[in-house]
Each structure stands twice: as C-alpha cells, then as structure tokens.
C-alpha cells in the first residue's frame, strides 16, 4: 500500500533523505529505528507534505496514488496519518471542533455521510475513554496545556477517529512514562488490522515491546541500511548505533 522508491529530500539546503526505499503491505507493522539525525522525522514530514521539506527525486505512492502530487490535506484524506512527535498547541480552537472538522473532511472525501454533532460527540466520548483522556479534554484548546503524554494520547485518539490506511508514528514513545506508553500502544494495537499499515519510527526498542513489528529497518544518513525481523531491534538495543559509524563497510549496499 505504501511504496517509497529512491526518495531524496532536503530541508532548506541540506539533503536529509538520500535514496530511501520502503514497501509496506496492508496489515504490516514496520519499525524504523536509527540514531538522531538519520532522517527519521524527516520521512514523516516529507510524506505528509510539510512546508520546507522538498523532494529532490524518487517517489512515494499510497495505494497507487502519488503522494507528492497531493496537498497535505489530500494526503490525509487519501488515508495517510502522521502521529506527531511534537503535537501543536492551538489555543482558541477546541479539540472538539478540530476533531469534528477533521473527521468531517476525511469522511466527505471517502463519500461517507457526515456525522451529526450528537453522533460525533458520542463517538468522541468512546474514543476518549479508550485512550484514557478525560472527556473534558474535548472542550479544551487543541493540545493546549496538555502534558506530553496527553498530547500523544490525543494523537492516538485522532488516529482512531480518522481510521487511516497508513499510520506513521513519529517517536510516539518519546517523553512517555511506562503507563502512558502502554495506553498509547494499546490504542495502536487496537487499530491493527489486515487492511491497515503502520510505520513506527522510534529511537528506542522499548516501544517495540508493546507494538510488535513485523519488520525492523535501520535508518542511517538518509537511507535504510539494514532490514530484518523483530530480533534486529533487540540487537540494536544491545549494540547501540555506534557500529554504523565504526563499520560503514558492513552496511549492505543499496
């Protein structure tokens, strides 16, 4: 469903992604691990179309549609979801208004009928409970004054409400204590299904104890330099990332 080929991308004058390839099939969970500065967050931003992130070459398709031909909102409507590492605070816009506008837009694009305010509220309450956020959070400004964990749970709530085809989780584990991590992982696991793919971007192996990946990839200097099964994550945990710099020859050529 997601097919990335030879992706080169830059931020301002600096090329960050240097020939990244990745294929995600429905039902699969892929973990992307790597040291700081490898381009992990850049991948999510490029795929979702953030301003300032420029594709130099290569392609990315979601269900056969070229992502780079679409606006950010069109990518979301096509089923791409990025859970942010740093969700944005938007004072003055209520979480409820935001979630409703978002779900309305995505449903409309899919040809589903719009939910009434009452139907939506009912749904939002259920999902709030699922991610362990008090219902009052619906009335607050988007992420306004939320703790790190609350912000991440709000991201997962959005993911559940939008029911995307492909979810990219960008360091969703950062800044979470173990209880919050479990809530987030439970939320993600509840959404695993045979027609949905996940790309879990993380620096640490810890999250992968809770969200079991089918594949693990190591991203270094803008490329995937090693791929394997879940056992690769354990290896990385034991060895760290220093081998990448120390033994560049061991890295298999693309």
């Amino acid at each position: 469903m997601l097919s990335i080929k030879n992706l080169h991308a830059r931020v301002e004058d600096k090329t960050i992604l240097k020939g990244l390839n990745l294929d995600v099939k429905p039902g699969e969970v892929h973990a992307i691990m790597g040291p700081n500065g490898a381009g992990k967050s850049t991948l999510g931003y490029v795929l979702s179309g953030r301003d300032g992130y420029e594709v130099e070459q290569g392609s990315a398709e979601l269900d056969g549609h070229s992502l780079f031909d679409m606006e950010t909102e069109e990518r979301a409507r096509a089923g791409l979801f990025l859970a942010f590492q740093y969700p944005v605070e938007i004072p003055g816009v209520s979480n409820m208004e935001f979630l409703k506008a978002s779900v309305d837009a995505v449903r409309e694009a899919r040809g589903d009928s719009a939910l009434s305010s009452a139907e939506f509220l009912k749904l939002a309450r259920v999902v709030c409970k699922q991610v362990n956020l008090p219902v009052e959070f619906l009335k607050r400004g988007v992420n306004e004054g939320f703790s790190g964990g609350e912000k991440k749970r709000n991201e997962i709530m959005q993911m559940i409400l939008l029911a995307p085809r492909l979810c990219i989780l960008d360091e969703t584990d950062s800044g979470l204590d173990i209880d919050a991590l479990k809530v987030v992982a439970d939320g993600v696991n509840s959404q695993r299904s045979s027609d949905r793919g996940f790309v879990v971007v993380t620096h640490y192996q810890r999250l992968l104890d809770y969200i079991k990946p089918d594949f693990v990839h190591v991203l270094s200097d803008g490329k995937i330099v090693k791929s394997g099964g879940p056992e690769l994550a354990k290896e990385l945990e034991a060895q760290g990332y220093s081998w990448l710099a120390d033994h560049p020859d061991e890295v298999p050529a693309e």
Binding site: D51, E71, I90
Partner: peptide, 10 residues
C-alpha cells in the same frame, strides 16, 4: 500544517 495533516483544507 497540523490541521491540514488531519484532512482540513488550508
């Protein structure tokens, strides 16, 4: 960008 990334038009 955050709002757009949730399907909301610019």
């Amino acid at each position: 960008y955050y709002l757009q990334s949730r399907g909301i038009s610019r």
